[in-house]
């Protein structure tokens, strides 16, 4: 498995989640654990560019794949989040940013959504497509603003 460009050789039991492998075995703590059951999105990482909930993924399934966590992200969204105050406590932020990167790629690839689908990215589209990432501080407005700013 490659994590943020570096080869990571890991010997883990088959029941170890990708999230726990990253956080507890590799010390890559950017992806967060908020629920451990795919409900909050704080653990979102990119697997070969596709956003996934790493808490619902088994590490062994990702043998040979390229995993990108927030530590490996270098994207205008990061500064946009700060400028638009798309964060408060910061615990959901890694997942929000990784998810937004994956979401923008999905939209560009024409993947439909319940809010309407393809065409220009609207705020409602972003809200729909980002609804798997919870923010209890309620920074949703700033997150949407940051994503819209980068998408334009």
């Amino acid at each position: 498995m490659k994590v943020n460009g570096d080869v990571a050789a890991l010997d883990v039991e088959p029941w170890v989640s990708l999230l726990d492998a990253l956080r507890e075995r590799l010390g890559v703590t950017g992806p967060k654990k908020g629920c451990d059951q795919g409900a909050c999105g704080a653990c979102t990482v990119l697997a070969d560019g596709v956003r996934i909930n790493s808490c619902l993924a088994l590490a062994v399934q990702y043998d040979g794949q390229e995993i990108t966590t927030i530590e490996g992200v270098d994207h205008p969204l990061q500064e946009a989040f700060v400028r638009n105050d798309g964060l408060q406590c910061g615990y959901c932020t890694s997942g929000q940013i990784c998810s937004a990167i994956g979401m923008l790629a999905e939209h560009a690839a024409g993947m439909p959504s319940a809010a309407g689908g393809s065409g220009a990215l609207t705020e409602d589209e972003v809200r729909e497509r980002m609804s798997g990432n919870l923010c209890r501080c309620g920074a949703y407005n700033g997150i949407v603003d940051a994503i819209m700013e980068v998408a334009r």
Partner: peptide, 16 residues
């Protein structure tokens, strides 16, 4: 003013 802990939280550097 931008929050001063913003960069640490958007790069994964902030440790909980």
């Amino acid at each position: 003013v931008d929050r001063i802990d913003g960069p640490a939280k958007t790069t994964g550097e902030a440790r909980f």
